[in-house]
Design a protein around this nucleic acid. Structure first.
Lengths: 127, 127, 127, 127
DNA sequence: GTGGTCTAGACCACG
DNA sequence: GTGGTCTAGACCACA
């Protein structure tokens, strides 16, 4: 499993460990990480992104306590078996709902009409 | 100026003071707050949303240091005169760019096609 | 809230942060910590037991993610409101079931009859 | 000697090797394993419980260094001769003391009276 | 090799 | 004052 699977933005306001947890949630929901897949080791991820191993370990630990990952003693972390298949698109879309609602609120605060926002998003999604 | 202009979610992970600053930025860019408009007092906002006055004060202070607001003796805070008019739509759209990019990244991690996301957003924007 | 409420055994095999989490679970279930009670600060607990603040913070964080505690921004941690009352004795007894089962297994491995074990436990509980 | 003598819970927080060592300690103290008895081979135990042979080997090694077991060429591990007889009940009871003390502490944290705990334990021991 | 725990200490975010 | 995040590094537990 490749450490480059995860992306990390150390400068973002969102803490690194949470960035990782949330990416894992989406990658598993989307099926890019399937049940049984093993994850890059804590040390690999930390080395690749030049962050502290403990930060990665913390993310993995939270993901484990959420039931996303399982620890295989001595071998590393794997995607938990409960997530047998890629989740339905409707369920995956639901994971974006909070972000979509925030976007709508902000669009309104900016008094922007819907069209330019949708046009811009269409363009970005198409690239 | 009504304290209900601002919305605040104390339970959100984003700090309250930053929620306020960013809303002010957008409301001013969108023209809902025009140059010279006076803002609700720190006390009113804090009382209305049941948050700490110091938090509101801090948000106002940051907005002032960004040049969004000005302190007028005896009148409290008012929208700064530099923001004479509503900004151009293209400039306002630019303020959404980071959120749009994050949305695109998350859509890809979820392996979602563009259509359902755009459809959902269209619906929310139309309500 | 007194830092001496929690006891910690740094030499025990069980990690300190988990000792704390499990104590919190029992103290809340037993009603010694009621909803809304505030907890000793991370720094107080760490200082009192001569352990690292991060270790305490980690325990509090886990307890929060389990819904036992709530964070009051800027004020510290309080017992979550969901735990309105002391739980029924039967429910509290259930929390001891794993330990009781382990004790029974060990008693059998030692080929000990029930009486001396019960007698010893009775004595310890009565002190 | 049957591999099913030992029970192992790979999912438990307690490390597997320690589960084995402590069981051996109790089985020998209780006389279920007598001096000279031979133990199931590392391979058998590992195969039976689907755990890593190295884990079993490590447990046996620790038990040997504690003087519980002896390595006999060609015969594998046997119970050491120093443990000629079943130990006195009082000595065996002492092996349970830490668990009993932990149980008492937890009972108090749960604010449980002694009776229900003793009743439940009596029931479990009688089954 | 894997992950886990803890420390000491810096610095930030929040109220 | 509160808790949160991250680091660097030591050391342990496990397979």
């Amino acid at each position: 499993m490749d450490a480059s699977l995860l992306t990390v933005q150390p400068a973002a306001p969102e803490p690194i460990y949470r960035q990782i947890v949330e990416q894992l949630r989406r990658l598993i929901a989307g099926g890019q990480l399937a049940a049984g897949d093993s994850l890059p080791s804590v040390r690999d991820v930390a080395g690749f992104h030049a962050i502290n191993p403990m930060t990665v370990s913390r993310a993995y630990g939270i993901a484990e306590s959420e039931g996303l990952l399982e620890r295989q003693r001595g071998k590393g972390m794997v995607v938990a078996g409960t997530h047998k298949t890629t989740q339905a698109a409707s369920h995956r879309l639901a994971l974006l709902e909070p972000q979509l609602q925030a976007l709508v609120r902000q669009t309104r605060e900016l008094e922007l009409p819907a069209e330019p926002v949708l046009r811009r998003l269409t363009k970005l999604l198409g690239e």
